[in-house]
Structure formats: structure tokens, C-alpha cells
Amino acid sequence: MSASNTAGIAILGAGIFAQEAHLPALQTLGPLAPKLRAVYSRSEKTAREFAAQATTLLNATPDVYYDGNPSFNLDTLLARPDISSVIVILPITQQPSIILKALAAGKHVLSEKPVAPDVASGAKLITQYEAEYKPKGLVWRVAENFEAEPGFIAAGRAIAAGKIGKVTFFSSRNVNFMDKDSKWYKTPWRTVPDYQGGFLLDGGVHSAAALRVILPSSMTHLSGFASLNKEWLAPHDTINTIIKNADGSHGIYELSFAAPSPSRANAGGGLVFTGADGWLQVQQTRARDLIHNVEKPILRVTIKSATRDANGVLGPEKEEVIDEPIRGVELEQASFFAAIDGKDDGLGSPLGALKDVAVIQAALTSGGELIDLEKLISQS
């Protein structure tokens, strides 16, 4: 795909992630991405500032759309025939209606995670898409960048290849320090969330997606507890759960934004998978890019495989280390554009993203009771 043989794209939303992740990803993709023809934000000021940033990064000047002026509002943008697809990066509760509006206007849609604020609304959205818009050839994908990260994909492939034997148990531990000075907290729709879980939903679907990509068997049951430890992170800021998978393996899934200080964040955290013949760990770290001589974030996959002789006696451990740069947003965009061209690699499935929301919703509502994740989705 190149900008010369496809209609353009528009970005709906001009917040932090649009600025710091999606625009740079489009810049990296270059001619592999359609031309950015328009941007939209609720406020004219924000839209114009975002357009200026896009002009600098992409060497193209997108048109500006915003609320309050019928000549430059979202409906006018969606009516443009030279825009075939949109990336939706708006507050969680606004996204479902905007996704449907864009699909109704005949646009392909890449919408930021989570797929919806809760399982019921997500299931309804998927049903409507599959009944009304998928038959028309319209593509809708969910931008879950953890699903596209090469590091997590490499970990899943290593386990599928039997490098640690059958998975017996696992742990996913992610503790974050969030204070009121954080740029993420200062976003108004996050400060007073009108959706379940607050940061736990917004950020938690990432770690749920990582498990979905890496585990060789689907997560089927969950039991746990949720709590609020910092009142300004309402409604909840911490979940601790156990999860069972279809193959009988099980593990711990913990997530919190209530660390008392930065030093507690991710102490003892990360992803660890234990198998019958070894174990595998995934951690985020930094490595030097020798070409540009800068430190860049990477995902490091460490695989420890047990060896045994003909008599079954344990021998030296084999170690394999895989370092992958963090580039999930770039790859999820590329996957979306390829799907529009009929080359679907399966990334960004709305149903997969719905499973991530189900994990968080179950963790928030379990109260110690066992929740059937598959039933939660099927009955919604």
C-alpha cells in the first residue's frame, strides 16, 4: 500500500496518545500508510495544534475539523469521499457511537482499545458490525498495541514451539505509581471516569491482551478481588486475581495503579510462564540502538529450557534471549492498512479485544466468586 494508490485517512481525537504514538507511527510507516487528510477534535484549538504537529512530522497539512461549526464538524469530515478510513482515539465511552457513525459513513475503522466500556456494549457493537457493515466489506479493527508487539508474539511462539514444555502456571504482575501530576491523570475524562475500573480498564486491557497473545490456551475462569486505595483513583485502583485456562493451567493476574511511591512500581513485576520443561520471562527494559546511539525501550524474552539425558537426569539449562523493539502501534496500523487491502493477519480482532475487557470486568465484579469468562461474553 502507498499513499498514491489509496484514499486518505483521518484521525479522530487529538489527545496524548494520538500525539505521542499514532502520529509517530504514521511517520515511521511513511508511504506504507495512507495520506493523513484530516484531523478532528472536539475543540478547535486542540484540533489546530494537533494538525500543526502532524504537518511537522508527516510533511502534509491535514484539514481541521471540530465541534460547533457545521462546515467543519465530524459529519462533514465523514462525508468526504477522499477519506476511506479513520483512526478513532477518543474517550472510552464516546468511542462506540463514533465507530458506528464512521462505519455508517462507509469508512474503515481502527479504534483504540478498549473495544467498549463493558462486555455487554462491546458484544452489541460487534454484533451490529458483523450484521450491517462487515458484509459491505468495511474493516473494523481494535488498536491493541500489546497484541501487535513482536516481543509478546515471540514469547507466544516460543511456548507454542514447546521450548518450556506444557505451561503449568504463570504470573502477570504490573504495579504502577500514578500521582495527580501525571499527564495521564490530568486528562479530564480519566480524572472523573464514567466507566468501570478507571485506569484498571484503560490500562488493564493491555496486560490481559499480552496474556491472550502468549498463553497457548484461552483463559476460561477468574476469581479475585478489587479495591480502591487512593480515593482520587476511583472507582477502583487495584485487582488481584487467579485465572484458569482451558488446558488446566492457571496463574496469577495482578494490576494496580496505587503504588505508594515510584520505587514500588513493578518491583517483582513482569510476565513469567512456568512449564514442565523450563520457564520464560518477558520484561520491558532498554537497549542501545547502535545505529542512532540512543537508548530505546525493548521487550526482552528470556527462555530457560531444561535438558535431560537418556536416563531423564537433569542437565545444564539452555538459555535463549530475544530482544524486540517496542513498536506495537506502528505494527497495528500497518496490519489495519493491509486488512483494508484484503491481507488480514488477524491482529486487532474486536472479539479478541472483547475478551480483554471480560478479564477486567470479571476482576472488578468477582468479589471472590468464580466467573466463567466465556459465559460472560456469550450471555452479553
Rank of each mutant, 00 (worst) to 15 (best):
G278M: 08
A21G: 05
A123Q: 09
A287D: 13
K180D: 05
A339K: 03
A79N: 14
G151F: 06
D67Y: 02
D179H: 09
R286G: 13
S182M: 12
V205W: 00
A161R: 13
L233H: 02
K180M: 12
Y185F: 15
W279V: 00
T191H: 10
G315F: 03
G30N: 14
I89R: 02
V301C: 09
K343D: 14
S305G: 10
L77C: 07
A38C: 09
L370V: 11
D202F: 12
P96M: 09
A51T: 02
D75L: 05
D247R: 08
G346A: 09
A79R: 13
N145Y: 07
L32M: 11
A10W: 02
R80C: 07
A54C: 09
Q19K: 15
N311C: 06
A287I: 10
G368M: 04
G251P: 10
L100P: 00
Q95T: 14
F146S: 15
T274Y: 13
I87D: 01
R37Q: 10
H206K: 07
A33D: 07
P235W: 11
A38N: 05
G106I: 05
F17K: 07
W184N: 09
N229V: 05
A334C: 01
G198A: 06
K296F: 08
A208L: 08
G342T: 03
F170A: 06
L77K: 08
N266E: 12
G315I: 04
V213S: 08
R141Q: 13
A358V: 07
K101A: 08
G278V: 08
V109R: 04
G270N: 05
A155F: 03
I326P: 01
L32N: 14
I89F: 06
P62V: 10
N245A: 12
V272A: 10
T241K: 00
G156N: 12
K318W: 11
S85V: 03
G156P: 09
V359L: 12
I371Q: 02
G106R: 00
D341C: 00
Y66W: 12
N5Q: 09
P216K: 13
L271I: 10
Q128G: 01
S261C: 11
D247F: 11
V88P: 02
S249Q: 09
Q281T: 14
A10C: 06
I291L: 15
L347D: 01
A358Q: 06
A54P: 07
A33E: 02
I243W: 01
I291W: 13
G8L: 05
I371M: 11
T61D: 13
L125F: 01
F17E: 09
G15V: 06
L110Q: 06
I239P: 01
N293I: 07
M1S: 13
R286V: 14
G342Q: 02
G68K: 06
L314M: 12
A276C: 03
G248S: 10
P150H: 07
K343M: 10
K355R: 15
A160G: 04
S227W: 12
L29C: 10
F337V: 00
L29F: 08
D323Q: 08
A18C: 09
R300E: 15
G312H: 11
G312T: 10
V272K: 11
